[in-house]
Design a protein around this nucleic acid. Structure first.
Length: 309
DNA sequence: ATCCAGGTATGCA
DNA sequence: TGCATACCTGGA
């Protein structure tokens, strides 16, 4: 008798669990003029612009932003297919289109880069065709890149995951959103450190306090020209030149931002001969040379340098 | 065991 | 202005 009860309970429990997280919608195609390759898809999702994507199966990626949980894979003709938990289907299509930024034609955007006069960027575009800049939520981009200083990508992902599990809201099953800034403001620095954020926990805490006092801080960035938006972001502790550029590029769609990290420094030295140029000089060169889509150029060069044999 | 990793803030010439 | 140095943490 007790045996039966136990077994029934177990089945009921595992049944619920399965229902909650294993019921996925059918695969749908994302309408888009872009053809990813396996390579450019992987680089887009897991190349260091976003930190909440992971490969879960052969060719299948799983990602989380806001309250969206999505799986994507490449279709036979290079189209991007997606699905999400059935319980989250409402509005998902719009979310995904927005996140992957399929508004403008890919070719038209690429055409803004100086591929005709610059053989280096031409070659990088050829190798990484399909690579794009994702449209991440601004607040999430700020959080992730505040965690990024002096860390490797795997560790940044780990900190984000820890923060989501500890302080984020449960979306469904084991999936949690990143904590929003209002929530972060209420968490003591000591607890933030439990996410393995290290000294960045202080930056997060102080930034959260500023954002709490100025609720429109992030929203106001949109109206500012690039130099002023960058300047404003750099008022936040832990946000310097590079992180400001990442937040503007990946979280605010500011394609003219040109983040200069160690990889871009290497690339510009090796391929463009900018020996002895400092970061600020390289950033300025990038913005001028690559123009209004400098950020996309940066992503191509970054991919090439980081995956260099 | 040391060193260093998608940087930033701070302290001195 | 311009350049070293410390800073959490963990993987190589």
């Amino acid at each position: 008798m007790p045996k039966v009860t136990t077994s029934l309970k177990k089945r009921a429990f595992s049944g619920n669990l399965r229902e909650e997280i294993d019921a996925w919608s059918r695969w749908r195609t994302l309408e888009s003029s872009t053809a990813f390759s396996e390579k450019s898809l992987a680089e887009t999702l897991d190349g260091g612009q976003a930190f909440r994507w992971k490969p879960i199966d052969k060719g299948v990626w799983e990602g989380i932003w806001n309250r969206s949980v999505v799986r994507v894979q490449l279709g036979k003709s290079g189209d991007l297919q997606w699905r999400c938990p059935v319980a989250l289907e409402k509005g998902a299509s719009v979310e995904i289109r927005n996140y992957f930024g399929t508004g403008q034609g890919y070719e038209a955007i690429i055409d803004h880069l100086p591929w005709q006069s610059d053989a280096i960027i031409r070659s990088a575009i050829k190798e990484w065709r399909g690579l794009r800049i994702l449209r991440q939520p601004l607040g999430e981009a700020l959080f992730c890149f505040l965690c990024s200083s002096n860390k490797q990508i795997v560790q940044i992902k780990q900190i984000c995951e820890n923060a989501a599990q500890r302080f984020g809201e449960k979306i469904i099953g084991q999936y949690h959103s990143l904590p929003d800034w209002k929530t972060l403001q209420e968490i003591p620095e000591k607890e933030l450190r439990l996410c393995k954020a290290g000294y960045r926990a202080r930056y997060i805490k102080q930034t959260a306090e500023i954002l709490a006092n100025e609720p429109d801080f992030l929203d106001d960035l949109d109206a500012l020209p690039y130099p002023e938006a960058s300047e404003k972001l750099r008022r936040l502790p832990g946000v310097g030149e590079k992180i400001a550029d990442c937040v503007l590029l990946f979280g605010a769609g500011r394609m003219e931002a040109f983040p200069v990290d160690v990889w871009i420094q290497k690339s510009m030295k090796r391929q463009y001969g900018l020996t002895d140029w400092n970061r600020e000089q390289i950033a300025q060169f990038g913005r001028i040379h690559f123009g209004s889509f400098a950020g996309l150029a940066q992503q191509f060069l970054f991919a090439g340098e980081r995956r260099k044999k």
